[in-house]
Design a protein around this nucleic acid. Structure first.
Length: 497
RNA sequence: GGCGCAUUCGUCUAACGGUUAGGACGCAAGAUUCUCAAUCUUGUAACACGGGUUCGAUUCCCGUAUGCGCUACCA
């Protein structure tokens, strides 16, 4: 039987980093066993679901490159199927009508109220003590016919246990007595999550459910529904959670945009790099290779390489240099610097276009220069953003000067205000404007002025590129070109800042 | 409160009874005399604790501690 997995986000927020990893693992698993990767949008919570969130999630998945193999399923379209399933279980006596009036939510935080109630009840609560559980069919039908509102609950058997073998967490079993008679259908007739998931997974022919560890509890409930429905239970694999530094839960409220996938796209990350980073969070290929292409990830992927303990997504909100996980930043830099130039170019083009630095000549008569330049400057870059910020001076006359660089390389040597224009004059008449002759010329001038080569080189660096770091200055001169180099060395702008 | 899960360098992780406990990120030092957040080299740092089992435990068992998850007519 072909493996069919699904990623099932609910459109109530952006694509969370943990969800992205769940999608990745589902995708890798499907690819590694020749199965299908499907996408289902769990949009049954009409109050919280938004189109904005849906498109944000779709954008994120698209960016990461996880295209579903079949059409997207919207859970809200299957409500009639869910309802029919609940009614069928009711007719078969596997579920019952609960006429208990719906409890109105208090002003307290819902989550807190649930915990408090659970604490009060302790472990003594008998989950089968619902007065309507054993109501006769006649009376139940009569009250329903009279218009009395009711929810439909699953009639969980008194004795027995739900058992499943989790591909990650291993053997799992739970006595029925630990599971409540869960509500399948609300009193307004709408289905609840667990029912909807089971029905949809059956409908979609899902063979393997790979999802967050926070669903282990639901798995027991869902198995009960599968069994009541007389359907085959799929395989399960639960994934450890991704936590914030300090072991706390990673949340939007506490950690903001750092948990959103779009943040990384917008910060100039390469999807391939981020995917690679995500794959290593909670999973190990058991080899020492860390930089892996999608094909390599697929080839190495297996469910038993996944851990049971949560991974911490490390970052320091107070340190701009470490705004997100160090390793993610490093990995992105690694990709920017070492991936085949041909694969990087389209991304650089997008970046330059967004910064209004793109010129069509870069793909035409200036193509050679452009590719050489990108290849030269990417050596020290971390993200695609760097091409339009640190690398701006290569593509435009309108670039900024980093104050620290100006102080360190220019203001500290006031003589440079005269020397740099003089250097420009000499460069203007240099017969062969290439690395060796330029080096000889600058070295001779340094000697003549009684200064170090570095003073002239780094002064020129900041005048030409606005920053203090970059490739070898000889390469920079060549790349920026004689005309622009001369102009920038003569410019007084930087001295008047 | 109950049920469940986890615990190897600061972080991501390797190890499936016998290793100087390995790798990566970070950090530190040195090198590179035109810079550096690049590159190269070196270094730094971990088996939560207490009992067992065993000739021998990071590895198996039990307990403690800590952390996390779940606990809804949310998804």
């Amino acid at each position: 039987m072909t493996v069919r997995v699904r990623f099932a986000p609910s459109p109530t927020g952006y694509l969370h980093i943990g969800s992205a990893r769940t999608a990745l693992f589902n995708y890798l698993y499907a690819r590694s066993v020749g199965g299908k990767f499907l996408l289902r949008i769990e949009d049954t919570d009409q109050k919280r679901s938004t189109d904005e969130s849906l498109s944000s999630i779709l954008d994120g998945l698209d960016w990461l490159g996880f295209a579903p193999d079949e059409e997207i399923v919207f859970q809200s379209k299957n409500i009639e199927i869910h309802r029919a399933a609940a009614l069928r279980l009711l007719a078969e006596g596997k579920a019952y009508r609960d006429f208990t009036p719906k409890e109105e939510p208090g002003d307290q935080n819902v989550k807190q109220a649930i915990v408090d109630r659970a604490r009060r009840q302790g472990g003594d609560k008998n989950l089968r003590d619902n007065p309507y559980r054993e109501l006769s069919t006649e009376e139940s039908d009569a009250r329903a016919a009279a218009g009395e509102p009711f929810a439909i609950r699953l009639k969980v058997p008194e004795n027995g246990q739900t058992i499943f073998e989790d591909a990650v967490y291993g053997h799992n079993e739970r006595a029925y007595s630990e599971t409540e008679d869960l509500v399948l259908l609300r009193s307004d007739g709408s289905p609840l999550y667990n029912l909807a998931v089971v029905c949809d997974d059956i409908e979609m022919g899902i063979t393997d459910v790979i999802r967050g560890q926070d669903h282990i509890n639901n798995t027991h409930k869902q198995i009960l529904i599968y069994e009541a429905l007389g359907e085959k239970v799929p395989n399960f694999a639960h994934l450890p959670l991704i936590l914030a530094p300090g072991g706390k839960k990673l949340s939007k409220r506490l950690h903001g945009e750092i948990v959103s996938m779009t943040t990384y796209r917008d910060a100039g990350f390469l999807a391939a790099a981020f995917r690679n980073f995500l794959a290593l969070l909670g999973w190990s290929p058991k080899s020492e290779q860390e930089i892996m292409t999608m094909d390599e990830l697929v080839a190495a992927f297996s469910l038993d390489g996944i851990h049971r303990n949560p991974a911490i997504f490390n970052f320091d909100a107070n340190n701009p240099k470490r705004w997100t996980d160090d390793k993610a930043i490093w990995m992105n830099a690694e990709y920017v610097r070492t991936m085949p130039l041909g694969e990087l170019l389209p991304h650089v083009k997008t970046e330059l276009k967004a910064a209004k630095l793109w010129r069509d000549e870069y793909e035409d008569e200036d193509r050679e220069w452009y590719e050489k330049t990108v290849d030269l400057i990417r050596e020290r870059f971390f993200t695609l953003r760097d091409f339009s910020s640190q690398g701006r001076a290569y593509f435009s006359e309108d670039y900024d000067f980093d104050p620290a660089a100006v102080n360190k390389n220019l203001k500290k040597f006031p003589d440079l205000e005269q020397w740099l224009p003089e250097l420009a004059d000499r460069l203007e008449t240099l017969a062969d404007f290439s690395e060796q002759p330029i080096h000889d010329l600058v070295a001779a001038m340094a000697e003549e002025k009684g200064t170090k080569l570095g003073v002239l080189m780094n002064g020129a660096r900041t005048a030409l590129t606005g920053v203090a770091v970059g490739p070898s200055m000889l390469a920079v001169f060549e790349t920026v070109g004689r005309e622009r180099s001369v102009m920038r060395l003569k410019s007084k702008v930087v001295w008047n800042l």
